Amino acid sequence: MDPFVVLVLCLSCLLLLSIWRQSSGRGKLPPGPTPLPVIGNILQIDIKDVSKSLTNLSKIYGPVFTLYFGLERMVVLHGYEVVKEALIDLGEEFSGRGHFPLAERANRGFGIVFSNGKRWKEIRRFSLMTLRNFGMGKRSIEDRVQEEARCLVEELRKTKASPCDPTFILGCAPCNVICSIIFQKRFDYKDQQFLNLMEKLNENIRIVSTPWIQICNNFPTIIDYFPGTHNKLLKNLAFMESDILEKVKEHQESMDINNPRDFIDCFLIKMEKEKQNQQSEFTIENLVITAADLLGAGTETTSTTLRYALLLLLKHPEVTAKVQEEIERVIGRNRSPCMQDRGHMPYTDAVVHEVQRYIDLIPTSLPHAVTCDVKFRNYLIPKGTTILTSLTSVLHDNKEFPNPEMFDPRHFLDEGGNFKKSNYFMPFSAGKRICVGEGLARMELFLFLTFILQNFNLKSLIDPKDLDTTPVVNGFASVPPFYQLCFIPV
């Protein structure tokens, strides 16, 4: 058959498939802009700032609406009420993970971030239990974070109060905490193996944040037939998995079943207990991918939040002064901060919360999916439909947070200066898919920041009023603009 005829037939089939998918069930789905064949609503979305586009569309179609990214149908949730109703009140029905062709290629359905069903539930339950087990290797997770915080302070001392970009050092600290939990080992910041790991993690975040990856996920045929950065992403992930597998083999040879040292040991012990169960989800494949998931999810998000926190503290020296006064009063100079201190430091706690609220790190979270046909607000959402959640619409709700575009710790303080919780605080998402490392991340943010401010004054290279804190939105995360500062020993 003539190649031209084959091409026309293929394009015609794709067009018909697109029209059929977009028209099927439209009477039951939430409203939304009319999609174009094949490309859907992509032309109506700013790929570099999806969150802003969703906010604009919500003003037209309401808090629940339908979009098509290519052939992929998505239902968008915008605003606290619908997000709570879906992710919390109907948590089980909305607990699936959205379709990610690239991740599915890399992870093969294993791990904790992109798995679904029984596998996801069992691996998540085990990971939560293990991360909360403060007795691994007779050292609590808090001990590990405190140790890394001391190392971080010593690295900052080496800058000798000269101007520096904190990106690298602030990236090393949370990565080392995860390494300590998974591998029972922290690395020197100049260790070549550690630097290679950091390089792969950072490069992957840069790649994932590009519009090209959005295109690959919406048109998965590209993955096999086109060159691009997605190939580098898959190569980096394969490198990390190979490295983790080597460490798993080392653990198998040296493990003491009665004295687990780290996450890998705990997983291997669980595998041993379930070795007679042919349906067990505790396999080497799941261990390797879960460890890679924890490394990827637990490094860049925390380091970016820390980097943004220091920029905001530079911009608002009056806030920094209040935090340091609270540190001096509650902790002093002669001991290290600990998590028990947080309950006695409402202002510092409010500042950490406000940093996370203000920066809105992951504006749309990772997409969910419905696990069955769901009736939601008089609409029928078919099983498997991807759910896109606007966390921006919750964290920047102007009824809950007056002047949401302003950095103001009073958003989390009552009139008496006591810490005030808010149900709208969802930087880790909400419901059954809430970030498994939430507790660890909150511990790291509090301890790293208090250790830094206990030991250093922060000095800006320019007038604080002239510092730009506008986030650089890159399609996946909101990151701070480049800046330098000086760490002046107190």
Rank of each mutant, 00 (worst) to 15 (best):
residue 2 D to W: 15
residue 15 L to A: 11
residue 21 R to Y: 10
residue 22 Q to S: 10
residue 35 P to N: 06
residue 42 I to Y: 15
residue 42 I to P: 03
residue 46 D to I: 03
residue 51 S to I: 03
residue 55 T to D: 15
residue 63 P to G: 09
residue 69 F to W: 14
residue 69 F to E: 04
residue 70 G to M: 03
residue 73 R to E: 06
residue 77 L to D: 00
residue 84 K to L: 06
residue 90 L to A: 14
residue 96 G to R: 07
residue 100 F to Y: 15
residue 102 L to Q: 04
residue 104 E to M: 11
residue 106 A to P: 06
residue 109 G to T: 09
residue 110 F to T: 06
residue 114 F to D: 05
residue 116 N to T: 10
residue 119 R to F: 04
residue 120 W to H: 10
residue 123 I to P: 01
residue 141 I to A: 07
residue 143 D to S: 12
residue 146 Q to K: 11
residue 153 V to M: 10
residue 155 E to L: 08
residue 159 T to I: 11
residue 160 K to R: 13
residue 161 A to H: 09
residue 167 T to M: 10
residue 176 N to P: 01
residue 178 I to R: 03
residue 180 S to E: 11
residue 185 K to V: 07
residue 192 Q to S: 14
residue 200 K to H: 11
residue 205 I to E: 10
residue 214 Q to V: 11
residue 217 N to M: 12
residue 230 H to R: 07
residue 230 H to W: 11
residue 232 K to G: 06
residue 237 L to S: 09
residue 242 S to T: 11
residue 250 E to G: 08
residue 251 H to E: 04
residue 256 D to L: 06
residue 258 N to D: 14
residue 259 N to P: 04
residue 262 D to C: 10
residue 269 I to N: 10
residue 280 S to Y: 05
residue 286 N to K: 00
residue 288 V to L: 08
residue 293 D to S: 05
residue 294 L to V: 07
residue 296 G to R: 14
residue 296 G to C: 10
residue 299 T to N: 04
residue 302 T to H: 03
residue 305 T to V: 08
residue 307 R to Q: 09
residue 313 L to Q: 03
residue 321 A to F: 12
residue 326 E to G: 01
residue 332 G to P: 03
residue 356 Q to P: 01
residue 360 D to L: 02
residue 361 L to C: 10
residue 366 L to M: 13
residue 374 V to K: 03
residue 378 N to M: 04
residue 381 I to T: 00
residue 382 P to E: 05
residue 392 T to W: 04
residue 392 T to L: 02
residue 394 V to Q: 03
residue 397 D to E: 05
residue 409 P to H: 01
residue 409 P to E: 04
residue 411 H to M: 01
residue 415 E to F: 08
residue 422 S to Q: 03
residue 423 N to F: 08
residue 424 Y to V: 02
residue 429 S to T: 01
residue 440 L to F: 05
residue 442 R to A: 15
residue 445 L to T: 07
residue 446 F to D: 03
residue 450 T to Q: 03
residue 456 F to G: 02
residue 457 N to S: 13
